[in-house]
Write a protein that binds this DNA or RNA. Structure first.
Lengths: 110, 110
DNA sequence: TTCGGTACCCACATTTTTGTCAGTAGGAGT
DNA sequence: ACTCCTACTGACAAAAATGTGGGTACCGAA
């Protein structure tokens, strides 16, 4: 994640959405317009709170997601995609479809 | 990379092409039809021999690449995309374009 | 006999990523 | 006074990914 020049567009794209979780977070936020922290956690099964926060912070720093804090008690924080994040989501759609189309084959890989 | 059921297509896709290198290998093999091991290493700058082999082995196991050994001395091994790999490559194209379109912004991320 | 060239393999060390568990703030409800 | 709720934060440990430096096989050429 260090600043450098990438060797191609795919390289750059993977640098921002890479890892196991960011794609799923993008996907979840793409379905629902905004999600609270707890809702997101439920939307991405298997992720730990810590991981979710870390990923969200990175995505916020990358300009992919927007974080809106409502100063209430108990706290309420809503996350949503920025335009930048939405455009990435769109670019990821064919990959998601590919995964669905080949789900059985992929699950059969040892 | 353990066998399990994925929560969506994107999840599954990321499981097979995940990591920093596989996308680039796919991309390189998509440009040239076949590449020898050494050529591939040069095509993916920064990757170590070990990493390249590990990734290629995984991709072979996933059915993304085909490995053809020519029994010669010195050895010659050619790698190419399978149809499955080519289809993934196609699905990755929009992501690559997204990366190119936003390269400057991505490079500016700390 | 020694060397060059290619595609690896192996053991080990380091780095990066991910998980676990505990704890915090502060107003509302009992 | 006490507990609940939510969105976190931090210390620590475990696991996974990656790098490093070596070695192997084989044949032909010098």
């Amino acid at each position: 994640m260090t600043k450098r020049t990438y060797i191609c567009g795919l390289d750059a794209a993977i640098a921002v959405m890479g890892g196991k979780w960011k794609g799923l977070i993008l996907f979840s936020l793409g379905e629902e317009k905004t999600l609270r922290f707890g809702e997101l956690r439920r939307a991405v099964p298997g992720i730990s709170e810590r991981m979710l926060i870390l990923q969200l912070r990175e995505m916020e720093a990358s300009g992919l997601v927007h974080r809106k804090v409502h100063h209430q008690v108990p706290p309420k924080v809503e996350y949503s995609l920025t335009d930048f994040g939405a455009s990435l989501n769109t670019a990821l759609a064919p990959l998601g479809k590919w995964g669905e189309d080949h789900m059985e084959r992929i699950e059969a890989i040892p």
